[in-house]
Simulated scan of single mutants.
Amino acid sequence: MKAAVTGWAWRTPLGVTVEQGVTRLLAGERAARPPEGFAADAYACRLVAPLGVQPTRSREGRFLRRMGRFALEVAREAAEQAGVSGGDRVGLFAGFGGLRAHWEEMMPALEKQAPDGRESWERGLKGLHPFWMLQHLSNNAHALVSVALKARGEGMTFGGANAGAQALASAQRALAAGAVDVAIVLAEDTLLEPEVLVELGASGVANRAGLEALEAPYSARAAGFVPGEAVAAVVLEPLERAGPRTLAWAEAADGADGSRGAPRPETLARVAAGLVTPGVHLIDGAGRADVTFDAAEREVLAKLVPEGACLTSTASSMGQLGASAPVVQLIALASCLRRGVLPPVAGLHEPAPGPLRCIVKSEETVGRQALALSAGAPGLVGALRVEVVFVGTRNK
């Protein structure tokens, strides 16, 4: 079910534009930094990878929070690049990390409430936005983006840690079945909400070190990942329709095993197996930065790819991006392959022993294909294969 990518845009911790983000990715930069705007010592994890910018003001802000407004921006940019102007055969497929409480508005409304509910309006409820319940809807971005882009075709909203992969896979199926002619895939997620940071810290999967002691995924001393956030959009079309407008080809899959935390490594292998071809010589790993998981991941994936395949991690640069990771990985890997350069595992100085050669410094390549993996709780997997037509200056 391979589809052609004809437009893309993102907001990532490494940059607002694709060009900016990929340049920093290839330079081996890391977006991790101490949090701003809240007390870092209130959370077990001391580092985050935020976007660092705010969305433009728009009338849709009545219903959309910050990440949703970013989603509207990137969807518009991707559609414009692809030359898509909407219609009954244009579908929208959205991936959303999950429902999150809007604490900055809810806490002032609740903190002075009485146990018996007396004078609740005057004690704070009057400060809630009239649309506060509507603002929590998981399909808000889907609805407003579809209106803005006049995307009136079939579509779907997915939720969870691999929602971006689900959205990509569903869009590809819709194209293959002829349900739509064009599929806009949109994914947004932030792991920087207070309740998420508390959960990540309590489960021990987030890094607790300061910036100077931060170890990269696949390091011999890896000790947890950096939570991040991102929004990304791509436009998919059938190969024969896209023609010379094609930026890359992509194919996605998703799966799960019911694990309480990260999926079992064999589940990664099972989901990835259907996407691997002899041309895959680069893997963008799940980047969990857990020594045991990293080692097991390398072992099972090495059995799927040709000997000599190498390993990188966009998560080492951008942090864990939740539901948005697969769409970000698609854009990042395709952009790097188009340049003919492989990105490094940022900050990796001492790779742990094991199969798959870890890339520690950007290097040139003539390879055309890459495999990307993402993982999250509960036992969720996203997999993606990216392929470009040309490599190097011809395809910049």
Rank of each mutant, 00 (worst) to 15 (best):
M1E: 09
K2I: 12
V5M: 15
T6Q: 15
T6Y: 14
V18G: 05
V22Q: 02
P50I: 08
P55K: 00
R57F: 09
S58L: 08
G61P: 09
R65P: 13
R65H: 15
M67A: 15
L72P: 11
A79K: 09
E80G: 13
G87T: 04
R89P: 05
G91I: 00
W103E: 11
K112F: 01
Q113P: 01
R118N: 04
G124I: 00
K126F: 00
S138A: 15
N139P: 10
N139T: 11
V147S: 09
G153P: 04
M156Y: 06
A165D: 00
A169D: 02
A174K: 11
A176Y: 05
A177W: 02
V205Y: 07
R208A: 14
S219L: 12
A222V: 12
G228V: 08
L236G: 10
L236I: 09
G243E: 08
A250E: 03
A256Y: 11
G258H: 08
V280D: 02
H281N: 06
A286I: 01
A289E: 07
D290E: 11
D294V: 05
Q320W: 12
G322P: 03
Q329Y: 08
Q329T: 04
L330F: 00
L333S: 12
S335D: 06
L348I: 04
P353S: 07
P353W: 01
S362F: 04
E364L: 04
Q369A: 08
L380A: 03
A383F: 09
L384A: 05
L384Q: 01
V386L: 09
V386K: 09
V388Q: 01
V389M: 15
N395H: 12
